[in-house]
Design a protein around this nucleic acid. Sequence first.
DNA 1: TCTGGGGTCCTAGGACCC
DNA 2: TCTGGGGTCCTAGGACCC
Length: 434
Amino acid sequence: MTKIYALVDCNNFYVSCERVFNPKLNNVPVVVLSNNDGCVIARSNEAKALGIKMGTPAFKNRDLFEKHKVKIYSSNYSLYGDMSCRVMNCLARLVPDMEIYSIDEAFLLLNNLPQKPELFARKIREKILKWNGIPVSIGIGDTKTLAKIANQFAKKHPEYEGVLDLTNNPRFREYLQQIDVGDIWGVGRRYALMLKSYGVRTAWDFSKQQKNWVKSRMSVVGLQILLEIQGKPCFALEKTPKPNKTIISSRSFGRGIETQEELKEALAGYVTRATEKLRAQGSVCSALTVFVHTSKFRPDLPQYANSQMIKIPHPTDYTPNLIRHAHDVLQKIYKQGYVYKKTGVMLSGIEPKNRKQLTFFMPSREKERKEQKTMSVMEKINSRWGRGTIKPAAAGTNSITKTWRMQRNLLSPRYTTCWSELPVADADIIISST
DNA sequence: TCTGGGGTCCTAGGACCC
DNA sequence: TCTGGGGTCCTAGGACCC
């Protein structure tokens, strides 16, 4: 039986999250900025209409922000992550087969419904809005790629009221002719340029190309995209998330830093975070890469970037070990006389902990048990009292780290994940509205 | 002054082996 | 002097995604 795919996409997700707890933000331009309050990463429709572009640096938009009284927020990932879980849990209650694709998107299978997929999608939409306050758009198609395309119409054009079904759609060709080839899922800027140089401008044009032609220019991935556009599924629904093969933790600094001591401290914090993720997915790692670089936006300062990987003899998830390794690598690539803007760590060679390769020179069982116990106690304390309640001393004390930590000057409260920041209902308002 | 962070997959080419 | 051919594994770099 042919499958019917739906893509549920939260509209302007981060902005929508802010609006749930602050209705004053409705109908006015709102943007959310990346870490360090650097770039615009989410915009309300009003902000899009002002011509504020995705990914542009905040300081370049300053005039627009001021002129139109744009509401500006630092990104509040505690809030967005929690809201995302709520939306996904709702979806999971409504359909048996779903794949969480990103923080604000999920693919669903809409087969064997008692009603037409479009009707069902409208109900999903209503419920998510009612239960979570988050508006979503839903595109439906014979493949994931077509569902993605349908979603673009559902989101952009109000006449669809948030849902478009492209399966058995008599206007299928018309729709594909309106989609720029670069807006196909998986066709990025480079491929779009290449395709256009051959006169392939729209999704419809693309769907008419020869398999070999596409494969020779865009590898097998391009071929899969072609087949998907033609309605032949190549990308299956992935119901269970696969463990990550690499885990990265890195941040830009709020200010440039120069000393190795400060870099070590930052790095220790990132390793701590990365190993938390590693343990959360039940894995160990056998390699670690450290990178540092100066700011490429300061050509007036001397530039330096470097990275180095080391193999770890015994695959591990033990934070102090990995911090030690990271510091060793940093020692090798650190150079004095530069103003560093960013450092980070990547864990790789990741494998399941219960299946890890044994080696002759493994640490003793006893030692391993101790390490495990230490990590599990640390984890318990942090999950009970909040992340970072206890951490390796190498990651620095708050008073020291404060000076280089990232800027988040416009942060909203963690309304849903922190007792002390719960929204407070104003008694007068409650009384007057009842 | 101020420019994010975290992932995946594919391919070509080198090292190495028989 | 003559200097093959086929295979595997690993890595770096490029392309893409949200």
